[in-house]
């Protein structure tokens, strides 16, 4: 726990560096299409989201199971990322699936197991963990998400008028 606390600021800086680099790269790619059609913005949003996840996972490195899982997931995704439309379809289908699953879970009633499964879905790579590890990873994941949100909010504040 202690080393994490010590490195939280450096984690933040690592994340911001990576994320900004990724953002500028995305912007450089999208420079020629400065028309802000919703589709363009949506694509950009997707890219930014992936960039945020990736830079987060990279700044944590493979020290944690969740970051490893996220990286492998992103890598497998990025291999098919050349066709953005394909990935979009895939993503949307994945999103609908999770939505349905969630509804089913809510219907089936509450219990420790249900909640643990729900948490497993939220934490990347949590499907294969037992409860003890899952809680551990969740704690770290929450910390990282917090730093991510803080850093992103700062960036948004910086660039917003």
């Amino acid at each position: 726990m202690k080393p994490q606390n010590l490195s939280s600021s450096s984690l933040k800086s690592r994340f911001t560096t990576r994320f900004l680099r990724a953002l500028s790269r995305i912007n450089a790619q999208k420079q020629f299409t400065s028309t802000s059609s919703p589709r363009e913005i949506f694509q950009r949003y997707r890219r930014i989201k992936v960039a945020a996840d990736k830079s987060m996972a990279y700044s944590v490195r493979s020290r944690r199971r969740w970051s490893r899982a996220m990286l492998s997931k992103l890598r497998s995704r990025s291999s098919s990322n050349s066709f953005s439309s394909v990935t979009r379809v895939k993503k949307s289908s994945a999103a609908t699936k999770t939505g349905h699953e969630k509804e089913a879970k809510i219907k089936s009633g509450t219990g420790d197991q249900e909640e643990a499964d729900e948490l497993r879905e939220l934490v990347p790579g949590g499907e294969t963990m037992d409860l003890c590890n899952l809680l551990d990873e969740t704690a770290h994941y929450i910390k990282c998400l917090n730093t991510q949100v803080q850093a992103m909010r700062k960036i948004v504040d910086f660039y917003s008028p």
Binding site: S36, Y45, I48, A51, M152, V156, S160
Partner: peptide, 8 residues
């Protein structure tokens, strides 16, 4: 936030 960035 990433949406905001994309729109921004």
């Amino acid at each position: 936030l990433s949406m905001k960035l994309a729109a921004l």
